[in-house]
Each structure stands twice: as structure tokens, then as C-alpha cells.
Amino acid sequence: MQLTTVFKRQSFWGNEADHEALNAKIASLNQEGWRVISMTSNTNFLGMVRSYTLLIERD
């Protein structure tokens, strides 16, 4: 089974997505049996990364 999910959590001081929280989310997905197949950054009109779209899969 495959699902897509959007990760939008932003860092406290910055306007970009929180990479530490993203890594923690990926680690928790791996522990639950999900595997990240693809990760795509979503940017605003200024080119700043605002979120990530993850394609995850479970056997």
C-alpha cells in the first residue's frame, strides 16, 4: 500500500520547514513499518522550502 503525506512543520525562528522534525517523522514512520519512497520539496513563490511531500509505502 502506498500513501502520500505532507510535512508542514516549520522551525521556530525560520520560515523554512524544520529538518530535525522531518528526520524524526521519517524515523517514526520507519519504526511503524513504512518506507519513504520519494520526498519532494514544496516551495513558495520566493523559492523558500515551505513543506515536503512524502510518498510512503508499506508491504
Rank of each mutant, 00 (worst) to 15 (best):
M1I: 03
M1N: 02
M1E: 04
M1G: 05
Q2I: 12
Q2T: 12
L3Q: 13
L3F: 11
L3W: 09
T4F: 10
T4N: 11
T5Y: 08
T5L: 10
T5S: 12
V6N: 09
V6P: 04
F7H: 08
K8I: 06
K8V: 07
K8F: 04
R9L: 08
R9M: 08
R9V: 09
R9Y: 06
Q10H: 07
Q10K: 13
Q10W: 00
Q10C: 06
Q10M: 07
S11W: 03
S11P: 00
S11V: 00
F12I: 00
W13P: 00
W13I: 04
W13G: 01
G14T: 04
G14A: 03
G14I: 00
N15P: 06
N15I: 05
E16I: 07
D18L: 09
H19P: 11
H19M: 14
E20S: 08
A21S: 15
L22T: 00
L22K: 01
L22P: 01
L22F: 05
N23F: 12
N23D: 13
A24N: 15
A24P: 13
A24L: 15
I26Q: 04
I26E: 03
I26T: 04
I26N: 01
A27R: 15
A27M: 15
A27Y: 15
S28A: 13
S28Q: 14
S28H: 09
L29N: 10
L29S: 11
L29W: 06
N30Q: 13
Q31N: 12
Q31M: 07
Q31K: 10
E32Y: 05
E32N: 09
E32Q: 12
G33H: 03
G33S: 05
R35V: 00
R35F: 02
V36Y: 03
V36K: 02
I37L: 13
I37C: 08
I37K: 09
S38K: 05
S38P: 00
S38G: 04
S41T: 10
S41R: 09
N42W: 02
T43S: 12
N44V: 05
F45S: 06
F45P: 00
L46H: 12
L46T: 14
L46I: 14
G47N: 13
G47M: 13
G47C: 13
V49L: 08
R50P: 01
S51K: 01
Y52R: 05
T53S: 10
L54P: 14
L55P: 10
L55H: 12
I56Y: 01
I56S: 03
I56G: 00
E57A: 09
E57P: 08
E57M: 04
R58H: 09
R58D: 01
R58W: 01
R58M: 07
R58K: 12
R58F: 02
D59M: 06
D59L: 07
